[in-house]
Simulated scan of single mutants.
Amino acid sequence: MQERAEATRRAVLAAAAVLFEQHGYVGTSISDVARTSGYTSGAIYFHFGSKEGLAEAVYDAHFAEWPRLVERWNSLGGPVLERLVGLSLAVAREFRDNVIVRAGNRLSNESRSISTELPKPFVGWISTCTQLLAAAQENGELAPGTDVERAAHVVVASFSGTHTLSDALNNRRHVEQAVVDLWTLLLPGLQASPDPGGCLERAHSLLDRPPAPRAPSPGR
């Protein structure tokens, strides 16, 4: 019974993400989600309570995509700046390819139309970026005098603007190249020994490397 309920939630969430991403919050109704998902409006209200609850669930699913990426890039060896660049490229791919991520982004942009309080965007990414830049600074990778917190804000703001422009101009088709162009401009000011081309090349090699398998749980 529980598995069936989870399957229903996943199917409704997937259908809602497609509609929210295409039509926005105001342009999507519970009836639209019911028709697209194949479940009744009553089932949707049972699982999510309201249209606001459904939007909040999609937004939460958007945020749930990030810990696995951050964990993967934090666990890799090598220079920290290369891992930060690789993480940003991985995030760009998610915005391009993952409808849950795209839907959450659109809901964030339309949050004033949603009568429930959604988590504040960007705060987590600024924190993650600050931590990575601080580690890079400890490794001697950053230019002397770099203000880590200010640099993190600039990186996140620049990435957000790059993504927004790519979305508006070509529906994110070229967002990965746009992020490469961004780092080509930012890295000479961040690196102690500027080598943006080498850093980007090595970050791409990490990006395309298959994730390491998880260690088995004790006792298995």
Rank of each mutant, 00 (worst) to 15 (best):
P188Y: 05
A134C: 01
G161C: 07
T146I: 09
R102C: 03
E138P: 00
L13F: 08
S75A: 15
G38H: 10
C129W: 06
G77I: 04
P218T: 00
E65W: 02
F63K: 03
L19W: 13
V26M: 11
A192D: 09
S111F: 04
H47V: 02
L84W: 13
Q191K: 05
S108W: 09
A103C: 07
G189F: 15
R150W: 13
L19S: 05
R209L: 13
K120V: 13
Q177F: 06
P67R: 02
N74C: 07
Y25D: 05
L207A: 03
R172V: 00
V70T: 10
H62A: 00
A92H: 11
A17M: 11
N170R: 12
T164N: 14
L200E: 03
S37E: 11
Q131N: 14
R112G: 01
A90E: 15
R68Q: 12
V12L: 10
D60T: 06
A14H: 14
V58M: 06
S50D: 02
T36W: 05
F95G: 00
V154H: 06
E82M: 09
A17C: 11
P121S: 00
N170W: 06
A212D: 10
Y59E: 03
R35D: 15
R220T: 08
L185N: 06
P79A: 08
R83Q: 09
D97M: 07
A61C: 02
R96Y: 08
I44D: 08
Q2V: 12
L187K: 03
R83F: 13
A178Y: 08
A16D: 03
S127C: 00
L169M: 09
M1V: 08
A64S: 15
D208K: 01
H204K: 11
S31R: 14
S50C: 04
F48R: 04
P67E: 02
V18L: 12
L81C: 09
V148L: 07
S127F: 13
A103V: 08
H174Q: 09
V33G: 07
G53F: 13
L206M: 14
T162I: 09
L107D: 06
L107T: 02
L81E: 08
D32A: 14
G140C: 01
V91M: 15
P210M: 00
C129D: 11
L107K: 01
G104V: 04
V12W: 10
I100D: 10
L107W: 10
A34I: 08
L190P: 04
G198H: 05
W66T: 02
N98M: 07
T36S: 15
P211E: 01
A136V: 05
T28P: 13
A90I: 10
R10N: 06
G38D: 14
E176H: 03
R96V: 10
Y39R: 13
D181T: 02
A203M: 10
Y39C: 04
R35N: 12
